[in-house]
């Protein structure tokens, strides 16, 4: 695949040059994983590290997740190999003051569709290191893909069930949860140092993996991500028990879009929908 090879060369060149020039002191990207079909995150601090960078449809981790780690925060400026979902997460982190946009650069990877996670996805690397502001206009057109019906097919299928069947569906799914918190660990927006699930005195969420604890945890997580989730799907892919976490997250995404006209991940200056309000927000459900 010569075209792809050229893109990879470009990616490595950008990373190498960014480190050589001192523009950044860390590039976070992907390297070959230990198993075929798996990619591992790669933290490049020396220009030579860039030669190990790869990119393909298996590079599914949302690398923005690392930006809030102390080891990464210690770097003055960091570059991310960023497909669209990664950039969206950076937008979310900027909105919540977790990341200083002047200290992040993107090596932007463009895929024809929003996710770009298919194995044979055609991808291209943007010319040059970009700031978030430089990147955003180049991805604005993908906003149109955020709310397509196909994206909400699973949500619609659940919605079509009776309330009783929905309860059974989620009771069955939540019952599988083993509270490993992989969903939390891979989520770029689950950056709380002390998650509410780990709080006692008072303990709002049962820490053990009981039905109640699982229900409370999964509901609260979906609620805490409402209006913030950038729909990257990392949590669902990480779940070892295959919980349909994106059903919840996408439902929240749909509600927020319909009710408040907001889609996360595009405007770093926008107020998140649950920290603001409009005087005439709809309230037909309130008696």
């Amino acid at each position: 695949m010569p075209a792809e090879g050229r893109q990879l060369e470009k990616l490595r060149h950008l990373a190498r040059h960014a480190l050589e020039s001192g523009a950044v002191s860390l590039v976070i990207g992907f390297a070959e994983g230990t198993v075929p079909g798996r990619a591992a995150p790669l933290f490049c601090t020396a220009p030579a590290d860039a030669d190990r960078l790869i990119f393909d449809g298996y590079c599914t981790l949302n690398l923005a997740n690392y930006l809030t780690r102390p080891e990464v925060r210690a770097h003055q400026t960091v570059a991310l190999v960023a497909r669209h979902a990664v950039a969206k997460a950076v937008v979310g982190l900027v909105q919540e003051s977790q990341v200083d946009p002047t200290r992040v650069r993107l090596i932007a990877i463009h895929c024809p569709d929003l996710d770009g996670l298919q194995q044979d996805v055609a991808w291209t690397v943007a010319d040059g290191l970009q700031t978030l502001d430089e990147f955003l206009p180049t991805a604005a057109h993908l906003h149109d893909q955020e709310l397509t019906p196909e994206r909400f097919a699973a949500v619609a299928q659940v919605e079509s069930k009776s309330s009783h069947d929905r309860w059974d569906h989620f009771a069955r799914e939540f019952d599988k949860c083993i509270k490993c918190y992989a969903c939390r660990n891979v989520c770029p927006l689950c950056y709380c140092e002390r998650c509410i699930a780990d709080k006692n005195q008072p303990q709002w969420i049962d820490t053990s993996s009981t039905q109640r604890g699982n229900f409370a945890w999964n509901i609260v997580r979906a609620f805490h991500l409402a209006g913030r989730c950038i729909d990257c799907g990392a949590c669902e892919r990480a779940c070892p028990m295959d919980l349909p976490l994106m059903e919840l997250n996408r439902k929240m995404k749909k509600v927020v879009a319909e009710r408040f006209g907001y889609v996360a991940g595009y405007d770093p200056k926008a107020d998140l929908p649950l920290v603001t309000f409009k005087k005439d927000d709809p309230e037909e459900f309130i008696k």
Partner: peptide, 16 residues
Amino acid sequence: RRRWTVFSELLDFVGI
């Protein structure tokens, strides 16, 4: 009101 909007939809979605 905004929180309730979202939370009530969530509870309804999971079958409450």
